[in-house]
């Protein structure tokens, strides 16, 4: 398991990286954490002939807090996000999702951007991005900067809207202001830290009386991309999130999934898990948002 040969460039600047990407196109891959890319290269499932190391680019580590969103540089390490108390308050779903991601060693190297561009439909951070409809900021030498919502970014398993010359530079995560915001991330994997057989995430905002004011829900591992369901979430607004309502929403969401089958889980089981996990996520979030109202 040794990677196929490649030439290695240490990007000195973002322009340097973008220039290499522009020149080499699909043969060129940016590498940051490499936690998915390096194993794929070792198995020769990925074989870029040019590798651009973007780990030294401070521009891709920048962090900006705005009132309605937080911008995280693409190579922000998962471990740093995990330890970021402010981020935990402003975008709590990231920390919720990270509880399920890999292990200390992988989170020390793994980056937010790497997970998103790898676009594994079972991975946690893509689901969090889809559920919150984060915005992915892409740059290329010729196309300049463009901003793609998560709802358009994930196209198919391991395939995104980013073109070959583009580098993900940052991710903007919406911040929900006000009281009563809570979120939950649920998944089932056979071992902790593995990709989920199915996962579900939600973020909700409840009024003091328990009425849902704002909601977003999504499923992972049950289609070629992480799924968000804005229309179904919309139906939660103005209602209390009861077990019945959560079950209904979860069933409708799961009905739209297109799970695959592998040795660990067949499609029927995954779809069933989707229902269970989304219901649990909604109820857990609701209970956290309004502990007094929880049954």
């Amino acid at each position: 398991m040794k990677a196929a040969p490649f030439t290695f460039h240490r990007a000195e600047s973002l322009d340097h990286a973008l220039d290499l990407l522009a020149r080499h196109g699909g043969d060129c891959k940016p590498i940051a954490g490499g936690q998915s890319l390096v194993p794929m290269m070792a198995m020769r499932l990925a074989r870029p002939s040019v590798l651009v190391d973007i780990n030294r680019l401070d521009a891709l580590k920048a962090r900006h807090d705005a009132p309605d969103h937080v911008t995280l540089g693409a190579i922000t390490r998962q471990r740093d996000m995990e330890a970021d108390v402010a981020l935990r308050r402003s975008v709590p779903l990231i920390a919720e999702a990270l509880r399920w991601v890999g292990h200390v060693q992988t989170r020390n190297r793994g980056t937010i951007g790497g997970s998103l561009v790898h676009a594994d439909p079972s991975a946690e951070l893509p689901l969090a991005a889809a559920v919150l409809d984060a915005t992915l900021v892409l740059r290329s030498q010729n196309g300049g900067e463009r901003r793609v919502p998560a709802s358009e970014f994930f196209v198919a398993p391991m395939f995104t809207a980013a073109n070959e010359a583009e580098c993900l530079t940052a991710v903007e995560w919406p911040v929900w202001a006000g009281a009563g915001v809570s979120c939950a991330f649920e998944e089932v994997a056979i071992r902790h830290g593995d990709f989920a057989m199915a996962s579900a995430a939600c973020q909700i905002q409840l009024d003091p009386d328990g009425t849902c004011r704002r909601a977003t829900i999504g499923l992972g591992g049950v289609a070629g991309t992480p799924l968000a369901f804005p229309d179904l979430a919309q139906r939660l607004i103005g209602r209390r999130i009861t077990a019945t309502l959560a079950q209904e929403a979860a069933e409708e969401a799961a009905a739209r999934s297109e799970p695959g089958t592998d040795m660990h889980a067949d499609a029927g089981y995954r779809r069933h898990l989707a229902v269970v996990l989304l219901r649990r996520a909604l109820l857990r979030a609701a209970s956290a948002a309004t502990p007094a109202l929880a049954a």
């Binding site: 936690q35 390096v38 060693q105």
Partner: peptide, 20 residues
């Protein structure tokens, strides 16, 4: 596993060139 600048990482998942 090794410590890279003090933090544990998997040494099979990064290239030596990255660690320069």
């Amino acid at each position: 596993s090794v410590l890279l600048d003090g933090a544990p990482v998997r040494a099979c998942c990064l290239f030596a060139a990255q660690v320069d």
